[in-house]
Design a protein around this nucleic acid. Sequence first.
DNA 1: CACCTTATTCGATGTTCGTAGAACATCGAA
DNA 2: TTCGATGTTCTACGAACATCGAATAAGGTG
Lengths: 116, 116
Amino acid sequence: MAKDAQHPDLDEVPLTTVLAALSDPLRLGLVRLLSDGVERQWGELDTPVAKSTLSHHLKVLRSSGITRTREEGTRCYVHLRLDELERRFPGLLGSVLAAEGHGATTVGVKPQRQPA
Amino acid sequence: MAKDAQHPDLDEVPLTTVLAALSDPLRLGLVRLLSDGVERQWGELDTPVAKSTLSHHLKVLRSSGITRTREEGTRCYVHLRLDELERRFPGLLGSVLAAEGHGATTVGVKPQRQPA
DNA sequence: CACCTTATTCGATGTTCGTAGAACATCGAA
DNA sequence: TTCGATGTTCTACGAACATCGAATAAGGTG
């Protein structure tokens, strides 16, 4: 992401934007995976889409204030803005994650080459 | 709606579908208006869109299991499936309605000609 | 420096969505 | 039956979106 790593102030983000971001199966899957609060690296995310597509979806999540991206060298790490989301939309993430039969794409974690 | 007034079983509806339905400003506005549990007639809904567009949005809400439509003569009435939604997605509607700065379109209630 | 890895951006494509107007179907009332 | 009110459906179109592959930029490593 780099240059335009715009992380919006959550107070500026309308609810509709967040809901739209969460209404995509892949993005919801990503959020579910990240819901444990652990920061993941791009490469760890095991999704059924092309790299560029994944990059796009992560950008959507980022620009809607759901995730935060941090870069370290060439690697990028993502994590949910859990606390902020909870303050802005109390209970939302919880009820979203609690739902069964969510149509989310299952996103796994690829064993990543440990940067020693 | 009439012929194909399909009201899906909420258990069959994926979360992503519900979120997608709620991510539109007008639809979210409709849901907010209906959140008091009161059943409203089509004509009562004061929205800034054409009749056909409103019909479309109401159809989306209906087919995603959020609202239920009842027809009486030529009039149609809508109301939220509050209890069912709560059981299926506990807390979801509450947190959605609680959010401030939702980007919802404000939907008013038109004084309706009382069918005496 | 050459090279590999990682992620972004660009161009192209096909799909879905929101919207409106016109035509149609229904029902109730005059 | 004719008219008016109410909704639905059809058709169309531009905007937005999802997707991919190729090209690009930036960091490490040898």
